[in-house]
């Protein structure tokens, strides 16, 4: 079997019009679909006393509750939450950079905790509340205080780490509503910015905290 990354196969085609890098990648995914038809029963059947159901390796139903809305997918167990968001649900705010639970660009909030979506299987995120950056966008003309504070503090340069940082800040402030600068530094230790926008990001976190507490901005 050739090495086919989980990004490149087994996804549904959204049938979008026009052409983009995304739709191109999604298009070539169709030809990788053959990987899904691996032989069943790779391992011996679970022993009789084991009541746990063995699923896959082909697509299985996976239900994800994202930003309050339930999405039903049919995906292989190996699909990460990040790939499910980006490739199957077109929620492309969380970015894929290291894909090894190191850089933080894919940070989303699962059950109240900041997590690397690349390091969590989508199937493992079932039954938990998943918040993504898309949930913080303006729906009634008013964006969440965290992204607003990022804009006001010019807390990004190339912007690629920004969605991950915004979610890391939100997760941190949800638990630490009145942090010190030192706590902010420690609390954002799981995200990298290669442009070096940390100063702006930390100030944005402090400003957003004040805003979320209902205080006035400095």
């Amino acid at each position: 079997m050739s090495k086919i990354d989980s990004e490149d196969h087994g996804k549904k085609h959204p049938g979008k019009k026009g052409f983009s890098r995304r739709s191109f990648l999604q298009g070539i995914g169709i030809s990788g679909g053959a990987v899904a038809s691996l032989p069943k029963g790779l391992l011996a059947e679970p022993q009789a006393e084991s009541g746990a159901r063995v699923m896959g390796p082909g697509p299985v139903p996976v239900s994800l509750r994202i930003n309050g809305k339930v999405h039903n997918l049919n995906i292989e167990p190996r699909v990460t939450l990040l790939d499910a968001l980006r490739n199957h649900l077109d929620l492309t705010g969380a970015k894929k950079v290291c894909d090894r639970s190191v850089c933080g660009t894919c940070t989303v909030i699962v059950a109240g905790h900041p997590v690397y979506a690349c390091g969590l299987l989508a199937i493992e995120a079932q039954g938990k509340d998943i918040q993504t950056i898309e949930g913080l966008l303006s729906t009634h003309g008013k964006a969440h205080p965290v992204p607003t504070a990022f804009v006001e503090n010019d807390a990004q340069q190339c912007g690629f780490c920004t969605p991950g940082f915004v979610m890391a800040v939100k997760a941190f402030l949800d638990k630490h509503p009145n942090p010190t600068m030192e706590q902010v530094k420690q609390g954002l230790g799981g995200n990298l910015c290669r442009c070096g926008t940390y100063i702006g990001v930390r100030q944005a976190a402090l400003d957003a905290a004040r805003e979320m507490r209902g205080g006035k901005r400095a």
Binding site: L38, P46, Q47, S50, G51, A52, G56, R78, L121
Partner: peptide, 27 residues
């Protein structure tokens, strides 16, 4: 990532029944 079977046992007893005798069978 290579495709794999997935199981989520609720008890240790169930989990033992799902493991392999050799490395590489189950993680």
């Amino acid at each position: 990532m290579q495709a794999f079977e997935y199981a989520k046992p609720a008890t240790l007893k169930e989990a033992f029944g799902l493991l392999g005798a050799q490395w590489g069978e189950a993680d």
